[in-house]
Design a protein around this nucleic acid. Structure first.
Lengths: 137, 137
DNA sequence: CTTGCTGCAAAGGTTTTGCATTGTT
DNA sequence: AACAATGCAAAACCTTTGCAGCAAG
């Protein structure tokens, strides 16, 4: 099996991801790591995020027209606000079973499940109310 | 409310999408519609797919590093083969309820749910077996 | 001295946008 | 005449890749 070296860059990327729950983009990881510790190339961020994801150390999700990265490996759904783009975690250990229950294992062998709920977060819901009150349709 | 005109291009795109269950990319829709009926610009395909999706006439999913389009509006999950990239539908009327059960409506108001199951399809599973038999690890 | 990792720059792929033109209403 | 939709080309965007140099094992 291929060995890897633990570079400061890789450690900083993982440490940052483990410190937040914001599901950052590669660009955001790059900005945060550059700001905090060391200068680093965006390509290096991509390479490390891909490597970490391949090893199962982090997750890579497809949300909002690009990839988002997440070091929280516990089973959870993502709530995505269609107004502000915010992403919120909701724990859900049972959802894998619920999602794979219908599947005929002779036709498809499930590995993992991704659940994304689209809707409006409390903040945007409130903002919408305010707008309605100020300028009624 | 904004009015629209039903152009041959738009109709052909929708008709094609409604005739398949392959979750094609924009590129694939473009190829199919060009082949079948009329010459059409790729940009027009994108514009119409986006318009149809905004109106809820079709769905746009983020699978495999890009968008896939789907005219089947009935509740269903997607099984994505991590080996060949194939996408298979599985009906699941109950999954919306299961996925939104955990959510605190005061914090997030759900609109719709997307469930993607990653795994290996029967064809690829068989191929893997064959490879194992021929060249054992 | 072999091999992994980095930085930089270039390339690749997908989706969107600007603009002139066409076609409906 | 107003306005939607089209085609084309360019731009924008995100992600990957090639390569030379560096550093760790």
């Amino acid at each position: 099996m291929a060995s890897t070296r633990n570079t400061p860059q890789r450690e900083a990327i993982l440490a940052y991801l483990q410190s937040v729950h914001t599901h950052p983009t590669a660009e955001e990881v790059h900005a945060a790591v550059s700001r905090k510790l060391l200068s680093i190339a965006l390509a290096t961020v991509y390479r490390n995020l891909n490597l970490l994801a391949e090893r199962g150390i982090i997750h890579r999700h497809q949300i909002g027209g690009g990839y988002r990265y997440d070091a929280d490996l516990a089973a959870h759904e993502h709530c995505v606000c269609t107004s502000c783009g915010g992403i919120y975690d909701v724990p859900a250990e049972d959802i894998e079973a619920a999602a794979t229950r219908h599947i005929d294992r002779k036709r498809f062998v499930p590995d993992h499940v991704e659940v994304t709920v689209y809707g409006v977060c409390a903040k945007c819901d409130h903002d919408t109310d305010t707008i309605r009150k100020v300028k009624p349709t």
